[in-house]
């Protein structure tokens, strides 16, 4: 194994190949984190709606989840990038096609965010539903309105319960960010492939990419375990039993 190619001047861009690796990590993290912000906020709203007693709040959230869960991410990626600009009204389509800054990047972020939101919604829903009904009833009996019961009783519990599955979801969006390479985002996997094509050091660069992915996964897993420990409610065994 010979890692000296990392220090060789890169084919383009002026730097060395190590710069390509660093830039790949940067885009992977940017796409995952921005996508996660969308996924977390939208998924929380959708998850709450899915547990609502009002059918016309529940139905649209269910439809959303079913659609986004049942279409492969790659297909969604292509739809955001190739199809949406064609089927929105013309002035918007023109903006998307010609004026939008970094279209690959933002389409990837939106696609991953909307896709992961459907998965986050299911976790939030199962978290809320795993809380005994008595808690809701007690909250309502104390005179809280239903939104207040969610805000002060259900959600604080639910978010603690779902820390482990939410960690998995974040790691999923982090790994799924590699699908963005299909529309031309030069994230870590894309850079690894590109470097292997220019330097023929396939084995070495794939090892580096693998180690970076594994290290970030490990870091996230351990920090979330720490958070889970900190957020534990005394006297409550917790853990997401799902259902």
């Amino acid at each position: 194994m010979d890692f000296s190619f990392l220090n060789q001047p890169a084919f383009s861009g002026g730097g060395v190949y190590l710069d390509w690796v660093i830039s790949g990590v940067k885009w992977t993290l940017l796409v995952s984190v921005l996508g996660w912000i969308i996924a977390f906020s939208m998924g929380s709203v959708l998850g709450v709606l899915r547990t609502s007693p009002v059918w016309w709040l529940r139905a649209p959230a269910t439809v959303y989840v079913e659609i986004f869960r049942n279409i492969p991410l790659l297909v969604q990626m292509f739809i955001w990038y190739f199809v949406v600009p064609e089927i929105v009204p013309k002035f918007m389509g023109d903006w998307l096609k010609t004026k939008m800054p970094m279209p690959e990047f933002w389409n990837a972020v939106l696609c991953l965010g909307f896709y992961t939101a459907s998965r986050v919604a299911e976790q939030v829903r199962s978290g809320i539903q795993s809380i005994p009904r008595g808690q809701t009833n007690a909250a309502l009996a104390m005179g809280l309105t239903l939104p207040q019961a969610y805000r002060h009783v259900l959600l604080p519990m639910a978010y603690r319960i779902i820390i482990p599955p939410m960690t998995t979801e974040f790691l999923t969006i982090f790994k799924n960010s590699s699908v963005a390479l299909t529309i031309g985002v030069l994230e870590l996997t894309a850079q690894a492939r590109q470097i292997s094509e220019y330097t023929f050091r396939t084995f070495e660069i794939f090892i580096i990419a693998t180690i970076i992915y594994a290290l970030i996964t490990l870091t996230v897993t351990f920090s979330m375990r720490w958070l889970e420990h900190r957020a534990r409610v005394p006297g409550y065994i917790g853990g997401a039993s799902g259902k």
Partner: peptide
């Protein structure tokens, strides 16, 4: 395997 993306795994095996 669970900590790396499927696409990278596909590239690995094709290599």
């Amino acid at each position: 395997i669970r900590s790396i993306p499927l696409i990278l795994v596909i590239f690995w095996f094709y290599f």
